[in-house]
Every structure is written in structure tokens, then in C-alpha cells.
Design a protein around this nucleic acid. Structure first.
Lengths: 120, 120
DNA sequence: CCTACATATGAACATATATTCATATATTAA
DNA sequence: TTAATATATGAATATATGTTCATATGTAGG
């Protein structure tokens, strides 16, 4: 994505002052990259349903699979991604593993999204 | 994803009361699907950068391409997705098209995400 | 030890998606 | 009209990603 990029507009439409201002105020790329990763993790139907379920109640892997009609494997794989994104935490009780939302911040972000969707 | 799904756990680990409670409180699938789409649209580095830029200032397509060092085509394609998700709006002034965040709700969702990322 | 069971994970496959390239559309000016 | 320019878009390609299948890991009980 760094080479083929042809000549963008001539000059007429460019607004140097705006660009300067924007350049200054931009968040660092590294932070934006992590933000994109966070949203990407949230951006899947299966994962959204899992998070919704966990926002109601702590559940074990089997509960989630049964509730959402998914295979145990599929759920496990998705939980791994959610764990990596620090969106869920877990505790083990014998062979059973219970998952829950990691913190209220996740809940807030999630419900904020719900509100947005409801309004459209 | 509806057939191979093997036998989930036997019964020992299932929590019927929890499942009932969760089933009742779950948002409708259609809403969760739209939420996933929303997050998916937000979940891309290029689009996140575009939104960040627009959260600072209204910009034309050329401005965005120059600011983020992207081809005009790539920017246009992404703006199409952002438009479809109602995350940005635009106004035309001659041949120049200016884009801006669609509303404060988007801004809130976006900054909320930034906060989350900053804290980790 | 061995068996059963809950969960995790690697590989393969099928699908989705982001960018590039080429080209189309729309607007202004001559 | 024709030329120039800003933006949009279709097709192709390369990469990413979600699910399945098979299997591994970890834990409890006999």
C-alpha cells in the first residue's frame, strides 16, 4: 500500500492548514492500531453474542455453546480471541471453566454500541 | 456451523437456570448482528485512522489520502463502507467532496475505545 | 494405572476483505 | 464540445479469518 498510490489530486483541493492541524492532533499510529484490533475483535456476530451472554451472567464453555447453538470448538476458539483482547476473564473450577466480561469498561463499550444500533 | 457441532458436554456442566435467564435477557439476534457489523466497520486500521482524522476536522478525499499516505482509490473504497455504516456524512462543493463524522454518537464510541486502549 | 469428560488447539478449507489497477462519473472551465 | 480534475467503482488478487475435524491437555473418579 505504499507504492501504487497514484498522484492524489493536483493541489487545488488540498488544504495544507487543515492537514497540519490534523497531523498534530492525530493519536499515535500504535494506539490507533490497537484500537482497530479491539474493534475488530468486537466485530463478529459470534463474539458479539458471546459477550452479550456474558454481560448477563458468568457462563461455562458448555453453557455458551448450548445457548448459542455452536460447537464447543468454535466457542473455545472465539474465547481465545476474546481473552487475547482482554475482553473476558475466566476462572477454573475443576474441569469446568467459567467466563465473564473482563471489566465494566467492556460492558460500557458494548452497551454504547447497542445504543447506537438501536437509534438507527 | 449448524451441523458438525458435536455433543457439547454431557450435562454435568450445563446450568439450565443460567441458560434460561440468559435466553430471556439476550438482545434480539438482528440487533446483535447490526452491532457486529458496526464494530467490524470500526475494526480496520485504515478506517480507524480516517475516522480519527475526521474527528479532528472535516476533510476532502484528497486531504485524507495525503494525510494518511493512501491512494485516492483506497480512501474512496473505505469511505463507501463508512458511509454505509452511517459513520460519516459528506457534502459536495463543486467537484470536491468533504467528509465529516456523522454525529457525536460516533465520536463518543470512538473516544470510548481510545480510552479503553490507553488504559491497557 | 485407566476411563470419562470439559476445554483447548493445530491444520485445512472456505469465505470475507483491503488494496491496486483500470476505468467510469461528475463538475468546472475554456 | 473538449479537456482537466476530484471522486467513485468494478474486477482481480492477495491476505485474513471463522468454522470444522481431529486430537491434545488437564482434571476427577474408580
Amino acid at each position: 500500500m505504499e507504492k501504487g498510490k497514484q498522484a492524489v489530486c493536483q493541489t487545488h483541493c488540498l488544504h495544507p492548514e487543515k492537514l497540519d492541524k490534523a497531523r498534530e492532533a492525530m493519536e499515535p499510529d500504535e494506539r490507533l492500531a490497537r484500537l482497530a484490533e479491539l474493534f475488530k475483535t468486537l466485530g463478529d456476530f459470534t463474539r458479539v453474542r458471546i459477550l452479550q451472554a456474558l454481560s448477563i451472567e458468568e457462563l461455562c464453555v458448555c453453557d455458551i455453546a448450548a445457548l448459542l447453538d455452536l460447537s464447543q470448538s468454535a466457542v473455545s476458539h472465539q474465547l481465545r480471541l476474546l481473552r487475547a483482547a482482554q475482553l473476558v476473564r475466566y476462572r477454573k473450577e475443576g474441569k469446568i471453566v467459567y467466563y465473564a466480561l473482563d471489566d465494566d469498561h467492556v460492558y460500557t463499550l458494548f452497551t454504547q454500541g447497542i445504543e447506537h444500533v438501536k437509534e438507527k
